[in-house]
Design a protein around this nucleic acid. Sequence first.
DNA 1: TATATACTTGAGTGATCGCTCAAGAAACCC
DNA 2: GGGTTTCTTGAGCGATCACTCAAGTATATA
Lengths: 190, 190
Amino acid sequence: MPRKPNHDRNELIARARDLFWRQGWAGTSLKDLEAVLKMKPGSFYAAFGSKEALFEIAMDKYAEDGAGRLAELVEAHGPMAALKRYPELAICREEAPAKACMLSKTLLELQAHGHPLAKRASAHLMGMEEQFAALFSQMQQDGEIAATHDPKSLARRYQSDLLGLRVSAEREGIDAHAIAREIAEGLDRL
Amino acid sequence: MPRKPNHDRNELIARARDLFWRQGWAGTSLKDLEAVLKMKPGSFYAAFGSKEALFEIAMDKYAEDGAGRLAELVEAHGPMAALKRYPELAICREEAPAKACMLSKTLLELQAHGHPLAKRASAHLMGMEEQFAALFSQMQQDGEIAATHDPKSLARRYQSDLLGLRVSAEREGIDAHAIAREIAEGLDRL
DNA sequence: TATATACTTGAGTGATCGCTCAAGAAACCC
DNA sequence: GGGTTTCTTGAGCGATCACTCAAGTATATA
């Protein structure tokens, strides 16, 4: 009996994610979303409920895709090579709407108001860090790095370096690839 | 003939800077500013012209004060010790309205819209980096670090580490002091 | 004290914000 | 084709946005 939607929901979420990623929470109006998604307000709210609900879905997709890309990298090249390649990969993608991390952007923008989306961004960052820690841990078991380090500390520092790199990559006149290279080389000293 | 202003302009700018620093550009409404500055709209616009103009002044003050604190540190302890202490100092101040850097927050929030304030934040970041580069350069002349490094590259990396640290410090459940310590220790390897 | 000159006040401007909802259009079942 | 159901449409809601301005108040000089 029903009529099927005109749009592919997954594609809509991806487009919304890119817009939010680029422009942030307050920087993205419903008019912007309507234009990019080619939806009128009524359809938009029927499909997603609210701007905040869509942002949450979009951010979840962002985190999921990022974790997936890292997992693929590990699958293909092992933990060490994956962590060495990841920084460059994070800033080189031409199709990405921004160099900086959507999670950190969201955290910095909304943290002060205690916004739920900031808490969720924070949780996703912690999830990434656990993924990093697991890789460092595995590298220790494989004897690739010294067993004296605390995997969680290594992950914390790696995450921090990554966040710094991706803020730097947003600046003009900065050779972020050089920083990415240095982060990768830093892993050799472990 | 004239009546003198009720408020100290410098103090007003400091309070505005703290509010903008914490809440960002879009996150700070004129109502917020009126409350913190205890000014009605008329006075506000007579004194500062616009929200954007005040933000610019506030950000300039932020950059100036930051540069001043580093200069004092250098004066007191020399370049190496200053750069080793600066990361911890950047995140430990209790009275600071946020751990993250106001310049990076502004850059990330407004860059996508090509906002003039983002360009100005970027310029200030570059100014900081030049200050760092000058210190690394001086350390080479003093024989404190190897002469083989490029001071500008060192400064770029140090700045990136600092930005990452200060984003990390904004997260909950992260021991940022440990990261600050690691950044300081990293300078020993030069 | 009279006058001139800032500075302060706050109601109110148009624009934009996120969002609602009644009505119309399209796709399915029988 | 008729009836049902879902999706789409877009005018318009109240709230808030950054901002204005005419009127009022306080402080200076004369």
